[in-house]
Design a protein around this nucleic acid. Structure first.
Lengths: 241, 241
DNA sequence: TAAAACAACTGGTATAGACATCTAGTCATA
DNA sequence: TATGACTAGATGTCTATACCAGTTGTTTTA
């Protein structure tokens, strides 16, 4: 309900109202049109626009001209420096990166990969296993999965260069965000020799999911970094209020 | 100059105009009032407001009611995930945080702490050692160092609540950024029992340096997180070009 | 049948004007 | 000398209206 002669601005009351409405909706669902809101609450359309504008700025809604206004996809709260590749990362640390492709094949997605890439179990995916070195010292073991349907015509040459560049420049897909988790673990039997470690040495396990603008995941990477050689660095800035 | 019957919206032209104007101004300088702009270019005040609102949202301008509109301080490029406290972090994961202060004292800085806080060896620093729990399970061991000269009158109460809040609100110091490193390690003899781990269990070692706007470090924290219970999560956005 | 025109929606841009609220200075009064 | 009232000018809120520009489905036309 909107109270007209309250000291609380109408557009603000409407913002709250809409936020309530949204709770019952899913991302992508449309909300009422501006004109409908205006009529329903007997307020000016410009006032409705002010409320909606604020919510769009907050990332709660998205407008689509000619179509309507929709509930936004869950917001990535804090945009971040990331999405640097191993090579960029190492170079910025003054080291020379090198990549050895250990395995490159097309396989049907197992339960795990299918789940993470949001595709059907058994759909074809590329499996790329790479050993990453810096200054000739093994640094990390990286296994990537990419759906064939989305990332067409991947070759060893591309894998050697940059998958990200290929996706953005050649395939013209827009990478929007990624979620990365880091945890501490111990090296396993099958990994240790490649990384020149003893079994049970500390390793940093990093998993990354990368998404296109459409929120479609296009890459799932599981990396194992040597705990004795690799530090993950994050620079953080305080948001302004 | 603003062209009225162009295909470029007037508010957008005005945005460009104002951006040009600003180049000759310093942060904090006032720009023309909304009515002045409206009269000068013979356009509606609401259109001027739209242009200014957009620039405010971009962080280029700040409005001050009753006073005017001013050039904003240089924008914080990527406000970022960081600088959340343990408590906030745990709560966002749906767990109940708890803190036990194991040690709180003033000591002369040793070589290491002095180096990291950029102060003289032997200067007084607070040493705060806290055990962090989530849902009553030990999660991390945190040791913080803060220079006494900068962070005056720290008490156990404050340490129990939030040091960041104290620094920003009571001391009126502005926290600007932090650098954090993460690495994988093995738990040590003196840490294991507190975290209820066996010696040599995988742990995540996180070090953080926090800085004020003046680039003065005011806090150095070394944390040890249980590898079996803690995952570090980062959301990353592709920078827009 | 296929293409073109139309209609009915959506959000986007722009106007003119009213009144509210906040800030800072001026000026008269207690 | 304060204090309060007034005032000019700033941003904030809100209205009513008009037309522009995409989107989509329907209807007319070739």
């Amino acid at each position: 309900m909107i109270i007209k002669d309250s000291h609380i601005p109408i557009y603000f009351q409407l913002e709250m109202e809409i936020k309530e409405l949204i709770k019952g909706l899913k991302p992508g669902d449309p909300i009422n049109s501006e004109r409908e809101f205006a009529e329903k609450y007997d307020i000016s359309r410009m006032t409705v626009r002010q409320a909606i504008n604020n919510l769009v700025n907050e990332g709660v809604l998205v407008r689509k001209r000619g179509k309507g206004t929709f509930v936004a996809a869950p917001k990535v709260e804090q945009p971040l420096s990331g999405l640097t590749s191993f090579s960029e990362d190492m170079r910025s640390r003054g080291m020379t990166p090198q990549t050895k492709i250990l395995n490159f094949q097309v396989i049907p997605a197992d339960r795990n990969a299918a789940d993470k890439l949001k595709i059907k179990e058994g759909s074809l995916v590329y499996e790329v296993c790479r050993l990453r070195l810096a200054d000739n010292i093994p640094m990390a073991l990286e296994t990537s999965y990419l759906p064939c349907e989305l990332i067409k015509n991947l070759t060893t040459e591309i894998v050697h260069a940059s998958i990200y560049e290929y996706v953005e420049n050649s395939l013209q897909l827009k990478i929007s965000h990624a979620t990365q988790t880091l945890e501490s673990s111990l090296s396993q039997k099958n990994e240790s020799p490649l990384l020149e470690l003893k079994d049970g040495s500390p390793v940093l396990l990093i998993e990354r999911y990368s998404y296109l603008e459409t929120d479609t995941p296009f890459e799932y990477v599981k990396s194992i970094y040597r705990g004795d050689r690799y530090k993950f660095i994050i620079d953080m800035k305080r948001g302004q209020e």
